[in-house]
Design a protein around this nucleic acid. Structure first.
Lengths: 133, 133
DNA sequence: TTATTTAGTTACCTAAGCTAACCATTAGCC
DNA sequence: GGCTAATGGTTAGCTTAGGTAACTAAATAA
């Protein structure tokens, strides 16, 4: 909670150097790691509603960072990174890696590892909580 | 990063039960802990620009949760919690405490402590980074 | 006493959430 | 096979919450 705004404002500043925003960035991130995905998959991952994803993805499409290939289903829209999108991802990745290193400065390596593990556990708690409602 | 949306969406859901939002909540939180404060102090704490704070605070004013007392300076607007605001804070506090406990479930007590300390350190790094630009 | 800084506001733009209502397509079922 | 459900996505319209630029009023500094 006490990190929320400092983190978001600094992150947006780093991303802003490349004309990106947080919500857009996490989509690129997901596509790189999971490969071509449908809007529903992306929306589920990000915990947003479908219309939100439609809009954000179409922004990325306009920027030329993603495009859609037809899935086997004529309803679904499978999104994938374009060559341009991959290029941008790699470039921003460097900035973000540096950013993450900077904010973790002074925290011992093993503690960092512990934090990352704990974050995953917290994420699971959050997601379970949600589906349990 | 991977916690961002799950956290925000669940937090907003908890706060929504009381008709509040994240940005509003953190203002109440600050006022409870720091006492009556000016808009500039609040904006600085939250890492937002002044106009953003003006708007959010005036929303809280409409809700009757805060009001302003004149500072010694005829420019500044010192905000304080109303009785109603204090009442709401206490009520929401219970919900949030429970929420925090739930998401930390399964994480050992000492690790939780370590995480909280680390968060403070990260926050400092973020803030230093910002002012160093 | 003039110039500069500080606190706050107004106006306007953008990103990114949400819900409600909808269309198309697919899957399930009798 | 043909109706009904469920699923994937979109459109429209709302809200919160961030940002800049340009401003006023008051206080400070030169």
């Amino acid at each position: 909670m006490l990190m929320y705004r400092p983190f978001e404002s600094q992150l947006n500043q780093e991303l802003g150097k490349h004309g990106l925003h947080r919500a857009q960035w996490t989509i690129l991130y997901y596509l790189v790691n999971e490969g071509p995905s449908t809007l529903v998959e992306l929306a589920h991952y990000q915990r947003v509603e479908k219309p939100t994803m439609t809009r954000t993805v179409s922004r990325l499409e306009e920027l030329g960072y993603v495009d859609h290939i037809p899935g086997k289903d004529r309803r679904e829209k499978r999104m994938q990174l374009t060559a341009e999108g991959t290029k941008v991802y790699k470039k921003v990745r460097v900035t973000i890696d540096k950013f993450e290193q900077e904010i973790l400065e002074g925290i011992p390596e093993d503690t960092q590892q512990l934090i990352i593990e704990s974050m995953k556990a917290i994420r699971m708690n959050l997601i379970n909580k949600e589906s349990a409602k």
